[in-house]
Simulated assay, not measured.
Amino acid sequence: MNKFTAMILLTGVLAGSAANAQTRDMPADCARCGRVLDIVKVDDPKSGTGGAVAGAVIGGLVGNQVGSGDGKKVATVAGAVGGAYAGKKMAEGNREYKITVRMRDGSTKVVRQELLHGIKVGYIVRVKDGKAKLYRP
Rank of each mutant, 00 (worst) to 15 (best):
M1P: 08
N2I: 11
K3G: 01
K3L: 00
M7E: 13
L10M: 01
L10V: 00
T11R: 08
T11P: 07
V13D: 07
A15D: 08
A15S: 07
S17G: 15
A18H: 13
A19T: 10
A19S: 02
N20V: 02
T23K: 06
R24T: 03
R24H: 06
M26E: 01
D29E: 08
C30P: 15
R32T: 01
V36F: 00
I39Q: 03
V40N: 11
V42C: 04
D43R: 00
K46Q: 13
S47E: 09
G48H: 06
T49D: 05
T49I: 12
T49W: 00
T49P: 11
G51L: 11
V53N: 09
A56W: 02
I58F: 08
G59N: 10
G63P: 00
N64H: 04
V66P: 14
S68H: 03
D70P: 05
K73W: 05
V74C: 02
A75G: 10
G79K: 10
A80P: 02
G82D: 05
A84M: 05
A84K: 05
Y85G: 08
A86Y: 07
K89I: 15
M90R: 13
M90D: 13
M90A: 15
G93L: 10
R95H: 11
Y97Q: 09
Y97A: 06
K98W: 03
I99D: 03
I99S: 05
T100P: 15
R102F: 00
R104D: 14
D105S: 00
D105C: 00
T108F: 02
V110A: 05
V111W: 00
R112A: 01
Q113V: 10
E114T: 08
L116T: 11
L116I: 10
H117N: 07
K120M: 03
Y123N: 15
K131I: 14
A132I: 01
Y135D: 02
Y135M: 10
